[in-house]
Design a binder for these strands. Structure first.
Lengths: 333, 333
DNA sequence: CTGAAAGCGCTTACAG
DNA sequence: CTGAAAGCGCTTACAG
């Protein structure tokens, strides 16, 4: 079935069928019903390729704001973004990426404004969760996709990690390793960061079932290796955990302290930075749980472009990537 | 850049540019070089959408042979196949699936012959690894993709599991669980099945590093639950393993025997059948390592269709899906 | 060996 | 409100 055939069967022209197909109005109700009936009866489905070929005449300009500078995790996200943008090359996509160093809300707002001046049609952003950013994003007239970190604003989709689930899986790992019981220490960046506390919550929920496992109050390292080193060092002088769960960054420093103490302590981490990779391959880290940063970038662009070019909304607002368990011999593929 | 522009710059027609682009010959060498030069200089890249739209006029008929009847694992493979075929609907694909029950080489050959009569342009097959099948497949004049099980024949690609790696990851799990040492029993289907012995090989390679772990000689259950039950029952009467690694099917029966014996034995399995799912969620199975059956089906069709419609060969002949570790709280997404 | 023309299925102005 | 015509970028006969 083609638009031409539909038009013939309905005794009208292709232009009019097209108008009905896209709800552009300006069609006499009776004619509209007739066309709709023919479409229904013939099970007509528009040819996606022809449609995409036409749509590619329009360029959709997508702006991206990341605080990616110098952070390997976000570099993977960026690779996913560029990969998907390349896939959409023929479809008419234009990408402008603003990379910010550190977590300045001011700089993030500046970046958004610059993109606005460049007339972007949609925005992908890893938002800093403060009131100002919420205000700026809410006032935007274009579709927004939040990436990796969610924020309470009107949006097309959030693409990122299910942190509670990530914590639960780390809890599962702790239960496997400490099947005869033991004590667990938790290290996170900061208790005000949603992702970090959600991981702790998930971890406790999972480990809670095992009475033989005792969990200490989480330590905060501000995602900083030096602080992490000091705090873990202190911890190990005063206590003797059997396992440490690093639920955020600062893993390098923390592990340095563990290795210096000389005791055998099981380590479970998150993500897959070079540090984690090295220690996982050498057996220092027992397991790590990753959140598919590449897929996050890829999917964010995919969702936004489909909304822009084809008005196809995502099935769900929340799009979680898989929490993957990586062990010593896991391949990256 | 478009073909039209290339033609203008090279002072020729679109038809001739097209001939050069596709190496169809019949172009004067000097003209050919000139066109190639213009293409080079302008960084021309053909528009994939336009190309696909044209190509969709040809129907490519893909035949699939699976011994999937009644096997939930293969049903997931089939879902992946149908998913990708649906994605290629606009591109001009026709799919004929022959489902076989059991492992009869005779029936598999009959299925291949029927597909040949239907004039398929390419074949996706989960081959039974016997000489007859190798002969039939080798004599086929159309591109072949082997799925899930590889076989020594000329082919476009193999899509499936890296069994050695799967075994290694299960070994990693065993090392985590038995961090203080212990004894491991292994149950597989049959030592003549490549995938099963490769898993054992990987498992031993990984566990070999830990001196405190002792591994018993693998038991064979013929992928059958009753035999599995009996053999594991016997095993548990004579020995006291701390962990059992089920590296193939027959998990149901094996676990029944474990539960009856009343002792606490750690269990590591492969794949994600309903049985595995249930026991994983209830904590009887510690972990399972899956091989992404859906992705296998999806990818097999993807590769074959690209070869057929666009002459795009896969990067590698071997296309391994990810060996995923699933724990109690892992989501399926 | 080469080019002009027609066509894939859809959408977009534009004239009425 | 509606239809005829042109066009997206590519490929395919076909005539020479």
């Amino acid at each position: 079935m083609t638009v031409k055939e539909i038009a013939e069967l309905a005794g009208t022209s292709r232009g009019t069928v097209d108008r009905v197909l896209h709800g552009r109005g300006n069609v006499r109700p009776e004619l509209r019903s007739k066309i709709l009936k023919v479409i229904e009866e013939t099970h007509y489905k528009p040819n996606q390729l022809a449609r995409a070929l036409i749509n590619s005449r329009k360029k959709f300009h997508i702006g991206v704001v990341l605080h990616s500078v110098g952070n390997p995790f976000f570099e993977d996200v960026l690779k996913g973004i560029r990969y998907r943008a390349a896939k959409f090359e023929s479809h008419g996509i234009e990408l402008t990426v603003k990379e910010i160093k550190g977590f300045s809300a001011r700089e993030q707002i500046d970046a958004i404004n610059e993109l606005k001046n460049e007339q972007i049609d949609g925005l992908v952003i890893m938002p800093i969760d403060v009131a100002e950013i919420r205000r700026v994003l809410s006032s935007l007239a274009i579709p927004v996709v939040t990436l990796n970190t969610d924020i309470e604003v009107p949006k097309v989709a959030f693409v990122g990690c299910d942190y509670v689930n990530s914590g639960m899986i780390c809890g599962d790992l702790a239960k496997l390793i400490l099947c005869n019981g033991g004590t667990v220490a938790i290290v996170i960046g900061n208790a005000t960061i949603a992702g970090h506390t959600e991981r702790v919550k998930g971890f406790l929920a999972s480990v809670g079932e095992a009475e033989a496992i005792r969990v200490m109050t989480p330590i905060e390292n501000e995602d900083d290796d030096d602080i992490s080193y000091r705090k873990v060092k202190e911890l190990l002088q005063e206590t003797a955990p059997d396992l440490i769960y690093f639920g955020a960054a600062g893993i390098e420093g923390g592990i340095r302290a563990v290795l210096e103490c000389g005791r055998r302590i099981h380590i479970v981490t998150v993500d897959y930075t070079d540090t984690v990779k090295r220690y996982l391959k050498s057996g220092v880290i027992a397991a790590t749980v990753t959140q598919q940063p590449f897929v996050q970038g890829d999917e964010a662009i995919n969702i936004l472009f489909n909304v822009l070019a084809d008005d196809r909304q995502p099935r769900d607002t929340n799009n979680y990537t898989r929490n993957q368990v990586l062990l010593r011999n896991s391949k990256e593929y």
